[in-house]
């Protein structure tokens, strides 16, 4: 069913005219979700993908990319094509790397050639949600089987001495559905370093790894 047939008029109206260059619309998809059923939400991804441009606001790009990742399993080939077009038009910003690459990871869209030399590598971050664009870029590359990408991620974890920082990086890696993830996680099955709890020391890395391996679907 087409977007206009799937969505209430209020959603159609806003999606067709919303200013995607304005940060005011950085919560567009949660608004759509509050106004419509899942079918409309999925159709809206394709409709908005067609409107994403070079001047789209970084926060809007962040919202769009997160929604691509969220609805990825429902997107048909036509919608994926529109999303691919959006990714080729809209700029890349370090500040939205997490969702930007997650949208690509979940859809399997390959725009590596566009991204070459766009992501300046900086591995000084300590947490995957803070200035960690390189981490998310390499998660994306690893998801596409790029040679050496998983080793880069594993190397970052290996060089991380702090137990809490290592826990957060491993937890982020554990959510990636890619070859080699389990192998990296298993390297830490006996790691006795602990995460930081709020009042007392948190779980040992080995305990967390056990949970994450359990939660993963078999490769």
């Amino acid at each position: 069913m087409a977007f206009v047939d799937s969505c209430p008029p209020i959603v159609v109206e806003r999606v067709m005219h919303v200013d995607l260059a304005s940060a005011e619309n950085s919560e567009l998809f949660s608004w759509i979700a509050s106004q419509s059923a899942l079918e409309c939400q999925v159709q809206a991804v394709g409709a908005i993908a067609g409107r994403m441009k070079a001047d789209s606001h970084p926060q809007v790009i962040d919202d769009f990319s997160a929604s691509v990742a969220t609805y990825a399993r429902f997107l048909d080939p036509g919608a994926i094509e529109k999303v691919t077009g959006a990714y080729l038009r809209m700029p890349y910003y370090n500040s939205v790397a997490l969702n930007y690459f997650n949208g690509l990871i979940q859809t399997g869209i390959d725009i590596r050639s566009k991204l070459k030399r766009r992501v300046i590598e900086d591995w000084s971050f300590t947490h995957p949600r803070r200035d960690a664009a390189s981490w998310h870029y390499y998660l994306y590359l690893a998801s596409l089987g790029e040679p050496g990408a998983m080793e880069k991620l594993a190397d970052k974890i290996e060089r991380t001495e702090n137990g809490n920082d290592a826990t957060n990086l491993l937890q982020s890696l554990s959510e990636l559905k890619a070859e080699g993830v389990v192998e990296v996680l298993k390297r830490y099955e006996t790691d006795t370093r602990r995460a930081d709890g709020t009042e007392e020391p948190g779980m040992m890395i080995s305990e967390n790894v056990k949970v994450w391996l359990m939660m993963r679907p078999p490769e």
Binding site: L38, Q41, S67, Q106
Partner: peptide, 20 residues
């Protein structure tokens, strides 16, 4: 883990948002 499994299987809104 249990909650994520349920949410991951949802086919109706609201869906858990990726990266949230």
């Amino acid at each position: 883990g249990a909650a994520s499994t349920v949410l991951g299987a949802r086919t109706t809104a609201p869906l858990a948002r990726a990266g949230a």
